[in-house]
């Protein structure tokens, strides 16, 4: 028996050494691919997430944190919102292509007592795998060499990162040869706030502008189990941290509503019944005409952003005063 245990022990030691060495190897490959060279994707739109995250980490609380895709980036006047609410604002909304999961995880990783988080996800949060799948290509190019940001990725999504590494390496090499326009530094300030002036709407004829055409219908909307699971967990986490989570509606082009627009106003009740996060806005209040929108069904121009900011502040103050 002793002999068997010694033999097994040696074998276990061997396998453990193999697995440990393999883990170190994977970590080394990961570190090399991600960090060498640095800042390759710095001109890209998605790399702005680094500045937003840095702003989140250095802003003293309690903070008003905004979560969403580009509807949040293009739909808020942060300075005006700070004025209206008296709270420092960190706008973490940037890009639907980063995925609701990753952007939410960034906020989760730095949530403190007293913080207020407004969830203004675009409407595909309802049924797409927004909270289970990591959009690994944009996330990795967005994070670039900032390895610390990888710690917010859920463990179950790490295989997606590892699997994408070879493609990321190739993509990095290719992009370094042909970098795109520096959107990061021309459109955003050091805190990741959008500077781009959007005085007028580019949506002149929605029905005949294929680049804008992106209808949404909420008729018979069913919340996906993944979304319910993740958001419930997020809510519980926030409550433990003594932070508050509220749902709000994103701004959306009224013309792009498909089916019955009244279905939009059923969403708050559906969300509160199944998830339980207070929904502080009426979605139809955020169905905007084309003259308040910019270049997509979710992006506001300057006027639209101001109106949206006012409505959001009003919704929030009403909710807080209840």
């Amino acid at each position: 028996m002793r002999a068997e245990k010694k033999t097994i022990g040696k074998f276990i030691g061997f396998v453990a050494a193999v697995l440990l060495l393999a883990l170190l190897g994977i970590a080394a490959v990961f570190t090399y691919v991600v960090c060498v060279p640095k800042d390759v994707f710095s001109p890209t739109y998605q790399s702005v997430i680094q500045d937003k995250y840095a702003a989140l980490q250095r802003t003293e609380g309690p903070r008003l944190i905004l979560l969403g895709g580009s509807s949040m980036a293009y739909g808020i006047d942060e300075a005006y919102l700070e004025e209206l609410t008296g709270l420092p604002v960190v706008n973490m909304g940037l890009y639907g292509g980063l995925g609701d999961l990753f952007q939410s995880q960034l906020v989760r990783s730095d949530l403190h007592e007293g913080d207020i988080v407004l969830l203004g996800y675009e409407y595909n949060w309802i049924d797409a795998p927004s909270f289970s799948k990591l959009l690994v290509d944009t996330v990795m190019s967005g994070i670039d060499h900032h390895i610390d940001m990888y710690r917010v990725i859920p463990f179950r999504n790490l295989p997606e990162v590892i699997g994408y590494l070879p493609s990321y390496y190739a993509e990095k090499k290719e992009y370094a040869k042909h970098p795109g326009e520096d959107v990061h530094h021309t459109l955003f300030d050091a805190d990741g706030r959008l500077l781009q002036a959007r005085p007028a709407s580019r949506i002149t004829d929605y029905a005949n502008q294929p680049e804008v055409h992106n209808p949404v219908s909420l008729e018979g909307a069913v919340l996906s189990p993944e979304s319910i699971r993740y958001l419930k967990d997020f809510h519980a986490f926030a409550q433990k941290k003594k932070a508050q989570l509220f749902f709000t509606a994103p701004p959306f082009l009224a013309e792009a509503v498909e089916g019955d627009a009244a279905a939009f106003d059923l969403l708050p009740q559906l969300e509160e019944e199944q998830i339980g996060i207070p929904y502080i806005s009426t979605p139809s209040d955020y169905l905007f005409p084309a003259e308040w929108m910019y270049d997509t069904v979710y992006h506001c121009n300057d006027e639209g952003a101001q109106i949206r900011t006012e409505r959001l502040a009003e919704d929030l103050m009403n909710a807080l005063n209840q």
Partner: peptide
């Protein structure tokens, strides 16, 4: 063996 495991993981 570790190299083989790394390849398999990727």
């Amino acid at each position: 063996s570790a190299v083989l495991v790394i390849l398999l993981v990727f």
